[in-house]
């Protein structure tokens, strides 16, 4: 771990986000369809134990880090952690604010994965379930993007799954009852972006992690999205 490592502190969050913004649900519907394709970024801050200061962890720094180390900072790498919960093994708990996804294991443990979230975080909190899963999913850009971006226009009928596809190696489709929420947990073709609030919605994981998660999750698994970024749902 370099000087830009991440340390958990008792007094303060080790990772924090500067997102003083509350999106309208309607706007979210549009951008969540775009999922991982847009590249607007908002800052994540991480604690630098070398200087004992909060430093911005933005896309430039993230790319630099990834080039130097070939992976995301240690804090965002997959690991088994102690996790006391009343939720059953197999449940997914998403802490978008801290950029962690927990997969609950027996005996008060969980696998913790690093995630990237949308520029406004996940946008909502609540309880959904995994309704469908797909290997190497097709990505279809939303109409607004097709209209604006010639690169996206060539995929207006869908971009086949593959290494260049922004949805990455696997996708878990989140449902409320029998309805697709249009939120997904998916892989990425930008692994350096884990830990950032970048792009436009959904939960991004690096391809190894989402493949690992995919192999463990069952259809119908409970997914709890935590109350991150209170401004996002205040008054909802």
């Amino acid at each position: 771990m370099s000087a830009l490592g991440i340390a958990s502190r008792l007094n303060s969050p080790s990772i924090r986000r500067n997102v003083p913004f509350r999106p309208a649900i309607a706007a979210l519907l549009v951008i969540f369809c775009a999922c991982a394709a847009l590249a607007q970024a908002l800052e994540t801050q991480i604690f630098d134990p070398a200087t004992r200061t909060w430093v911005t962890y933005d896309p430039r720094q993230a790319v630099k880090y990834y080039r130097a180390h070939g992976q995301t900072p240690e804090e965002f790498q997959r690991r088994i952690v102690d996790f006391k919960t009343a939720e059953k093994p197999g449940t997914i708990i998403i802490d978008g604010d801290k950029h962690f996804l927990y997969f609950v294991l027996p005996n008060f443990q969980a696998i913790r994965y690093g995630i990237g979230v949308g520029k406004e975080g996940f946008g909502w909190a609540g309880i959904v379930k995994v309704g469908r899963m797909q290997e190497w999913p097709t990505w279809t850009p939303p109409a607004e993007m097709v209209e604006r971006d010639p690169k996206a226009a060539q995929y207006k009928d869908g971009m086949p799954g593959g290494p260049e596809n922004p949805l990455g190696a696997r996708a878990l489709y989140l449902y409320e009852g029998n309805q697709d929420t249009i939120y997904r947990i998916h892989g990425t073709n930008q692994p350096w972006s884990i830990g950032l609030n970048i792009s436009s919605g959904c939960i991004r994981m690096n391809n190894d992690d989402v493949t690992d998660l995919y192999s463990r999750v069952e259809i119908g698994a409970k997914v709890i999205v935590l109350m991150q970024g209170a401004a996002l749902y205040r008054g909802v």
Partner: peptide, 23 residues
């Protein structure tokens, strides 16, 4: 900010906070 959410979400938030020593 006063948050109103289902209990399962709130309790999972407590679990996650404990896991990373978050207030």
């Amino acid at each position: 900010n006063l948050l109103e959410m289902p209990e399962d979400v709130a309790m999972a938030a407590v679990d996650a906070a404990v896991a990373i020593s978050q207030p």
